[in-house]
Simulated assay, not measured.
Amino acid sequence: MKAYSRFSDTELADLLKSGDRTAFTEIFNRYNSLLYIHAFKKFNNKEEARDAVQEAFAMIWAKRETLMVKSNLVGYLYTCVQHKILDQISRNKTARNYLASLQNFIDEVKEGTDDLIRLKQLSAIIDQEINALPNKMREIFELSRKKNLSHKEIAAKLNISEETVKSQVKNALKILRVKLGLFVYLMFMIRF
């Protein structure tokens, strides 16, 4: 039986290339702790460090036949672990960015939905108060604010004087201001 613990890194790498599982186990036992410490210093997280080292060893086993260890095995192993560390950091950053983006989207949708609900409620209150105006005043007011007709156009359309139109719109605004309050009145003026 071979004493794998006595083999050099180059001999172990050659045996690994030929598919020798015991050589792989010896390499793992020889360098696992050192690679783990290296990864832990980068992550400061036991699980992530362990995952990076295990992924590196899994990749080494999967690519054992094409393994290109030129000078030293430990340098090759550190490089493999370093690549896994960078991959993990990139995945973590991507995941954080995705979660932040998703949270922003949820916040915007929620805010937009809340605004939409408030706007619909406000519109319903305003429409209710406009409908409560006397008929002629309501008709003139709606032509002015909802149809955007000028006082002159409303006067011509309804066969009344411009002064009557002006007076009716002014009175309607006074009534709405009192009933809806200043805030709702200002919102209404911005909306229409």
Rank of each mutant, 00 (worst) to 15 (best):
A172V: 02
K120I: 11
E153A: 15
D114P: 02
L133F: 03
Q128C: 09
I130N: 04
A56H: 03
T25C: 10
V178H: 12
E139A: 07
N148V: 00
K179I: 03
M187S: 13
N72L: 02
L173E: 14
A3T: 15
H151K: 09
R145P: 00
M1K: 10
R177I: 00
L180M: 11
F57L: 04
N171K: 15
Q121M: 13
I85S: 05
M68I: 07
A172L: 08
L73M: 07
M137V: 09
R177Y: 12
D9F: 02
Y4N: 11
E139M: 12
R91E: 10
S5N: 15
H83Q: 14
E65K: 15
F141L: 05
S123P: 06
T164K: 11
V69A: 06
I89T: 03
E139S: 08
K146R: 14
Q88F: 05
A62M: 10
N104I: 09
R6G: 10
M1T: 13
S144Q: 03
V178L: 13
P134Y: 09
L180K: 01
Q128M: 10
S161A: 03
Y36F: 14
L119V: 02
L116W: 05
E47L: 07
S71R: 10
T164E: 07
L73E: 00
V53L: 00
D127Y: 03
Q121D: 14
R118W: 02
G75D: 08
Y185S: 12
D9E: 12
M1E: 14
L149Y: 04
K174S: 13
Q128H: 14
F7W: 09
H83V: 07
E153H: 07
L158R: 05
N92Y: 07
I85R: 04
L35E: 07
E162G: 06
I175Y: 06
E26S: 03
L176N: 08
S144K: 11
E108P: 03
I160L: 08
S90C: 08
T113D: 12
D87M: 02
L16E: 02
E48R: 11
E142Y: 05
N44F: 05
M137H: 05
F43G: 04
S90R: 15
E55V: 01
V165L: 01
N97Y: 08
I37N: 11
N159H: 11
T66G: 13
I126G: 01
F28C: 09
S90L: 07
T10Y: 10
L15R: 09
K63W: 00
L186G: 10
Q88V: 03
Q82W: 09
S123G: 15
L149N: 01
I126N: 01
K70E: 14
V53T: 01
L77N: 03
L77I: 01
N32H: 14
Y98D: 07
N45K: 06
E11Q: 13
